[in-house]
Each structure stands twice: as structure tokens, then as C-alpha cells.
Design a binder for these strands. Sequence first.
DNA 1: AGTAACTTGTGAACACTGTTCTCCCACGCA
DNA 2: TGCGTGGGAGAACAGTGTTCACAAGTTACT
Lengths: 248, 248
Amino acid sequence: MSQQDDVPTAPWERPRRRQAPARIPLTRERIVEAAFVVLDRDGYDKLSMRQVAAELGVAVSALYVHVDDKDELLQLMYNRLFDDVQLPEPDPETWQEQIKDFARDGRQRLLRHRDMARISMQHVPFTAELLPHVERLFAILRAGGLPDRVTAIAGDLLSTYMEGFTLEESMWKERMKDSSWTVIGAQLENYFASLPPDRFPNLVALSDLMVGETNDYRFELGLDIIVRGLASYGPPSGYEDKAEDEAS
Amino acid sequence: MSQQDDVPTAPWERPRRRQAPARIPLTRERIVEAAFVVLDRDGYDKLSMRQVAAELGVAVSALYVHVDDKDELLQLMYNRLFDDVQLPEPDPETWQEQIKDFARDGRQRLLRHRDMARISMQHVPFTAELLPHVERLFAILRAGGLPDRVTAIAGDLLSTYMEGFTLEESMWKERMKDSSWTVIGAQLENYFASLPPDRFPNLVALSDLMVGETNDYRFELGLDIIVRGLASYGPPSGYEDKAEDEAS
DNA sequence: AGTAACTTGTGAACACTGTTCTCCCACGCA
DNA sequence: TGCGTGGGAGAACAGTGTTCACAAGTTACT
């Protein structure tokens, strides 16, 4: 952005401001960027203010000029991860698929950075930057004909599932990061299958299904369960009438 | 709870040390108990090994004789919170209500101790002590006539929802613990309603529903959405397809 | 009996953490 | 020229999880 700094200053233009500060000024953006570098390299447990400062070649206290808290820094990271989300125009025909895409995209974003799901969990999702996304999500759900009270909590339900699933998923990877996933899965399946069948008949019977499938498949199935539950409150498929919900 | 010692140790559980003789005053149980005292009094952020040791009037390093890690201590707390769960005999008629009761009970347990939801989120739910509960849950789901692949992830889905919902719920309380819930709700509702209606029509329209209802109601509705989604995979209601034979 | 091994618990120490304090220095402005 | 201001540096404070050498007390064996 400042690639013309090496051009010598013409004698007739008096530099009103200091033209080129010797160092790039420290900004929130640069701090967040460095924090992501540390996070991906060392993981959440090693993500400390000192490490971020070291990454920037800067004193720790310099960070606190731009950021109030470590908590605020984490918030900024979360916001930046989702700030370029683009939800589609609400379409009553395909609202179910639109909702699923929202969750799929969220999971992919969380998986982009190591331990990101852990950060996402301890933070309130209603920041000003993310409000447009919630707004769009609501628009899609209402376009699907869901009653308002269902719409009002569907956002919570979906993001809770998305974040919770991804958290568990990445925790397994982290906990046994020495092995590949196929090895992990085999170990787990083996464990469940080795339980005493008289006391754990169902666990034994389902051992292959619990971990044998890929995470993608399991995420997709859970998503489908939720969307089916949501759709059960809406108009029968095929219609687009906004139907009142029938009790019991 | 010591009758399950013959359950093989899961591969992700680090082998713990020999159990201390029963006559020694300091035991794992006492440490866990003290940890709960500290947690309820000072919250999760202040729950440190030093505080737990101080609560017992004991040196910090003494804890490490009985507990490998702080992580293990947290896991023990989680286990103890759920170790006396009692799930009912599977009943194909009322399996949906049985499932809901499972989640309701879990939420109540998490709410019993301050910040407990935060602890629950970062721990693996498949410890040996908790396996019987998963087994029972599976039995109920299968009795409801759900296909095995749905049953296999329904447990994850339910506990993720339960823990995620409770986490968010308790985070709000913690973050604004000065005010009562009605005040918090009013503030939030006010905030959403005050957004520019041209850019956030749906948020404004739903502002009262998002926070106006009680947490109990919102939890119940989310639970119903999930159970409906699950039921959509099962036999049509009214029928009772003979489930896999249950040995009584 | 003596002795060795072991379990428990102690106090100090190490290497960190988030945060704040004082200080310094380069800049913009008068 | 002087001055104020604000960003950054470095040290310091009060913590954190964990480990270390060491001291008791108990048990087990020669």
C-alpha cells in the first residue's frame, strides 16, 4: 500500500506530515493478523499476548494501546473470521438448503484455523459486525414459512450445533494429534466394540456407526435432523403459505 | 460407581495412578469436592490448583499425588456431576418425552454449579463412568424405532444442544451478573428493537421473541425441534414398529 | 531388630500468564 | 524554540500450572 515511499521527496513539496514512519504503524488489524499466525502455529493454549507481540517484534504493552483486553482480541478474531460471510437472497423454494449452506460454511470457517472452535464458544455472537448475517438468516427462515417464535431460536440452535460439533471434532484431532483420523477412528471403534456386550449391547451394536463414518457425513446428518425439525413447523412442502402452527 | 472398574480404559484416557488407600485423609473425592466449593464461590476463572489446595489447607503439590493434571480434575468434576443420572427403562410409547427429560435433567445439572457449562464443553463425554448413560440413551432411541445411523449421532446432537444452550445461557448471566434477568432481557430487547428497521427488518420484528421469552421456554422449543427432526426418521406416530428385540 | 521401599505431603522453584506502571522519545503544533 | 501528546519500551506485580528435592510416616522383608 505504501510502495512509493522510496521515491525521494521533491524539493517543492514540503512534507506536511511525516512521510514514511520507519516502521509500519501498529493497528488492530495487524495485531489480529499476528494473533492468527500464532494460533495456527502454536494452538490456543500458547496464544498469549506475549507471543503475539513477539510475532510483531513489539513490546507487549504496545498491544494494549490498541486492544483493551485479550478477550477483545479474541472477539476481533472471531469477527474477522465471519465478516465476509455472504448469505444468499431468501428463496422460499430452497430455504432448507440455504440454511444448511449457512451451517456448512460456518463449520468450514471454524476449521480453517486451529482451535478456532474453542474461541468461538466463549463469546457472544451478537456483535454489531455480525448482525447483518443474523438478519439474513432470519429472512431465510421466515421465507421458509416458519412461525416467528421458531425463527427466533433457530439461529441459536443452528449456530450452537455448528460450533458444538466443530468443537468436538477439533478436540478429537487435537487430543490425538499424533495419529491420523483413520487410526483414531479405528481405535475408537475397537474400543466400543470391545465393551462387554451384555452390559452395553447398543454401544457394541452401533460402534461402527458412531465413528466409522466421516465427520462430514455425521455433520450432514445432524444438520438434516435439525432442518427436518424446523420444517415440521412450517407449511407442508410444496405450499408456500405461511401457516399458523398447530398445538400438540 | 466403582462397580465399573472392569470397563476397559479408553485409549484417550491417560492411565491414572494407583488409587490411594482409603485411610488417607486426602482423596480424589475430597479434592473434587473442594474444587466445587471454589468454583461456586469464585467462578471458573478463579478456579486454580492453589485455590483448591488452600480450600483444603494443603500444599499445592499434594494435589498432584492424587490428580495428574488440572485437566483431569475438571474431568472428574464433570463425571461427578453426571454420575448419578438415572435414565428410565426404554418405552416405545413415550421415547420422545424420555429423550427430552434426559436433556432437561442435563441442563439442570449444569446450572447447579456456576460456570459448569464452560467446563463441560471442553471435555470428552465418553468416559468409562458415563458409558452406561450413553448406552441407555441409545436404548431409548432404538426403542423409538429410529434407524441406527440416526441413533448413533443423536446422542451427540442432544448433548451438544444441551451444553451449548446452557453455556450461552450462563454466559449471559455471568456477563451481566449485576442485573436481574428481566433487566437484561429488557435491555437486549430494547437494543434489537432500536436497530434501523430498513436494514434489519427481521431483527426488529422478532426482537421481543428473541429475548422476551424465558430460557425455559426457549430451551423447550429447541428441544422440540430436535426431537421432531429425530422422529421424522422413525416410524409414523401412532404405529409402533417392532423395534429390535430388547432382552429384559 | 534393622533396613529398605513406598506412599504422602511440604516448600521452593521454574517458566509462564494478563495487565499495569513509569519512563522515553519522536512527532505535530504553536 | 518549547510543549504537549500519544505510541511504544521495559520492568514489575500478582497470579498461573507444574515439577523438584526433601522430610516424614507407613509397610514389607531380610
